[in-house]
């Protein structure tokens, strides 16, 4: 049996009529989309250009051979690839523990109303905005010369650690802060100590967020050339690093080196190495996104 409706039905039908989103809505959507396209088109153009240029030279010689400035057809970038790996792993070993511990201190122990802690907080924000070349100068003056570590893998790693430390701290703090207070209260109410609460509840819950931030920070470090130019990575290196005190070169520097050669073949080599660098960055970022989605938690 169908119901009998009240007589205002026609009016209701008119009122509910869908006439599409208002003009303002539609135009704003296009503006936003336009803004997005600028970024996407630039990125796409860059990738296509690099690929077309470098693809022919993306051969095993590129990672099997050492650099050469006389024979572009035989030149490779093995020392730069190995150098990058050495530097980035060392950077991770130094900056992750320091950055994460600093974040734990700031989030879990520091009293945010204290002047001193506010000062630290503002400083970290500011450090994240300091240009990387400035860190290069610091690395050269303090680490390479004053600490006499010279132009070595460890100097590069320490400098890059300083460079990305603020990013690691800030992203770790956000991950730690995202763990709800009720979890801490639940743990403490059972008679757990603050350290037990942090190490067994807060940190495991924050690890995916921390890892995501850490990978993004390291992928910034792996692409850096400016500070390392000052730290001697620019010298021509035809051997893989064999330790922390070894001299080294890294991929961005090798790319820079080749691009500044006048012969056309070296431009192609540089583009090919760019593809490898971009590939590594892509894998790192994809892993970060995977971690974020895989462990995303709704409280």
């Amino acid at each position: 049996m169908s119901a009998v409706f009240t007589p205002i039905g026609e009016q209701v039908k008119q009122d509910l009529q869908d006439t599409g989103p208002p003009l303002q809505d539609r135009s704003f959507r296009w503006v936003l989309f336009g803004a997005l396209s600028v970024g996407i088109i630039t990125l796409a153009a860059l990738l296509i250009f690099v690929f077309l240029e470098g693809y022919p030279r993306l051969t095993p010689t590129l990672w099997q051979n050492m650099p050469s400035i006389r024979f572009p057809e035989k030149a490779g970038a093995q020392s730069a690839i190995m150098g990058s790996i050495w530097v980035i792993v060392t950077t991770a070993v130094i900056c992750l523990p320091v950055g994460i511990m600093a974040a734990i201190y700031l989030e879990e122990y520091a009293d945010p109303t204290k002047r001193f802690n506010k000062l630290i907080e503002i400083n970290i924000q500011n450090l994240a905005a300091v240009p990387s070349i400035v860190y290069g100068i610091l690395g050269l003056g303090v680490i390479a010369r004053a600490l006499a570590l010279g132009q070595t893998v460890i100097t590069a790693a320490l400098t890059l650690s300083l460079l990305v430390l603020p990013v690691v701290i800030i992203s770790s703090r956000e991950a730690i802060r995202a763990v709800p207070q009720s979890i801490r209260a639940g743990s403490l109410a059972l008679g757990a100590t603050q350290w037990q609460t942090i190490s067994r509840q807060v940190m495991p819950a924050a690890v995916p967020g921390i890892a995501t931030g850490a990978i993004l920070a390291l992928s910034r470090a792996i692409g850096e050339a400016a500070p390392l130019l000052l730290l001697g990575a620019v010298t021509f290196i035809t051997f893989n690093p064999d330790g922390l005190m070894s001299s080294y070169t890294v991929m961005p520097i090798q790319i820079y080196n080749w691009i500044s050669q006048s012969r056309e073949e070296f431009q192609v080599l540089a583009a090919a190495l760019c593809i490898i660098l971009l590939g590594i960055l892509l894998v790192m970022n994809a892993f970060a996104i995977y971690l974020r989605n895989r462990f995303q938690r709704r409280w």
Partner: peptide
């Protein structure tokens, strides 16, 4: 807190 336990208003399982 070990001797005086607490159950909260909103369930907060770990």
């Amino acid at each position: 807190r070990r001797r005086i336990g607490m159950v909260f208003q909103k369930p907060n399982p770990f």
